[in-house]
């Protein structure tokens, strides 16, 4: 399991593909994935298509990421969520902070 990242749309978008379990066991790996992200990025997209499961520590990691990446300058998208992952975001009212799809 590893996190794959890529830039898109001339460096204005940054995509992180999260696979497997998204919880504290990935905390370092996840932070490494977005630290040093290019300043040109306007949209940060976390793609959950391959995420099997998430827990509250995963939610904390997303909030941390948002906080450390200047949220006033960027939008954060959580995309391709499986139904259960989506439900966890809904319960947590993440729609106030992220664009969820």
């Amino acid at each position: 399991m590893s996190l794959v990242t890529e830039y898109a749309h001339d460096g204005k978008q940054f995509i992180i593909y999260v696979s497997g379990h998204f919880d504290f066991s990935r905390v370092q790996e996840f932070r490494n994935a977005y630290e040093g992200m290019a300043p040109s990025v306007r949209q940060v997209i976390i793609d959950f298509r391959a995420t099997e499961h998430i827990d509250s520590s995963g939610l904390g990691m997303l909030l941390n990421m948002r906080k450390s990446l200047a949220p006033e300058q960027r939008r954060f998208h959580l995309v391709n969520c499986t139904p259960t992952v989506r439900k966890v975001f809904d319960i947590s009212r993440f729609d106030k902070l992220f664009v969820i799809d």
């Binding site: 827990d55 509250s56 939610l59 319960i91 947590s92 009212r93 106030k96």
Partner: peptide, 15 residues
């Protein structure tokens, strides 16, 4: 839910 802790119990309650 946007607080740093207590999110876990909230998830249990809701799910």
């Amino acid at each position: 839910m946007q607080q740093v802790s207590g999110r876990g119990l909230m998830l249990i309650r809701e799910l």
